[in-house]
């Protein structure tokens, strides 16, 4: 084994890590905001809005991210209306296109997670809050949100890890994330496995840390479930 080559490859991959994390973070945040809107539409009580929200979730969860990414990056840009709009400077940039595509996709999943968590809030808790005279916002902040958050965490943690993995597709749109650098090194040096193995180790480590962080958060947020005598 060529340790020099392994070390150089590793550091070249690490140099691409900030981009991977940037795409991940921005798309997760964007996805969370869109998801909040979608959930609001879904529980709004208005039939058209509800149908729209259902369609959104069906489309973005029911089709491969690869196609969504392609349509956002290459498809949108092929429409002259988009190229001549004020959004073009943003959509021209592959980074923002990647963030947009990944954000739209994760929003479909996050919306379902949020909705499931909202449904899990006991009815009585809301009634009790109202009986105490809490306003809608206060009730959401003090009662609904904390309970829903706890319910959402396990699924949310899985989705966050899925998104780290999803960032590996942005090589399609000319971004130099960890996997695309690994593939390039592989094609240039023609070493078949080592770059892939090192890239795999990096992704695995990030996801391991992320999973552990969410687990400890879960434990901290649910002290009432801890140390239950069996």
């Amino acid at each position: 084994m060529d340790w020099d080559f392994a070390a150089t490859t590793f550091w070249r991959l690490m140099a691409a890590l900030p981009l991977t994390l940037e795409v991940w973070f921005l798309s997760v945040v964007l996805g969370g905001l869109i998801a909040a809107g979608v959930v609001w539409m879904r529980v709004s009580g208005s039939r058209p809005l509800e149908i729209l929200a259902r369609a959104y979730v069906a489309i973005f969860r029911g089709t491969p991210l690869l196609i969504q990414l392609f349509l956002v990056y290459y498809g949108l840009a092929s429409l002259p209306a988009v190229r001549h709009s004020i959004l073009w400077p943003v959509l021209r940039d592959p980074l923002y296109c990647g963030v947009l595509a990944l954000g739209l996709c994760t929003a479909g999943y996050q919306a379902e997670i949020f909705r499931g968590a909202l449904l899990a809030v006991p009815h009585g808790a809301g009634e009790a809050a109202k009986a105490c005279g809490m306003s809608g916002l206060l009730m959401f902040r003090r009662i609904v949100f904390p309970i829903a958050l706890r319910h959402a965490l396990p699924a949310y943690s899985t989705e966050m890890i899925s998104m780290v993995k999803a960032t590996a597709l942005v090589s399609l749109i000319t971004l130099w994330d960890v996997l695309s650098v690994a593939l390039k090194i592989r094609n240039d040096t023609l070493v078949t496995y080592l770059p892939l193995i090192l890239a795999g180790a990096i992704y695995f480590t990030i996801n391991y840390i992320l999973g552990a962080a969410f687990l400890s958060l879960e434990r901290r947020l649910s002290p009432h479930l801890r140390a239950r005598p069996s």
Binding site: I161, K165, T167, L169, L196, G200, Y203, F204, N207, Y208
Partner: peptide, 22 residues
């Protein structure tokens, strides 16, 4: 389970595709 949930799917495809032959 931890390994294959932690690796990007595309990477797994590459590993299996080339690895199986090797």
């Amino acid at each position: 389970a931890a390994l294959f949930r932690g690796l990007p799917e595309l990477l797994v495809v590459y590993f299996v595709y080339f690895g199986s032959s090797t």
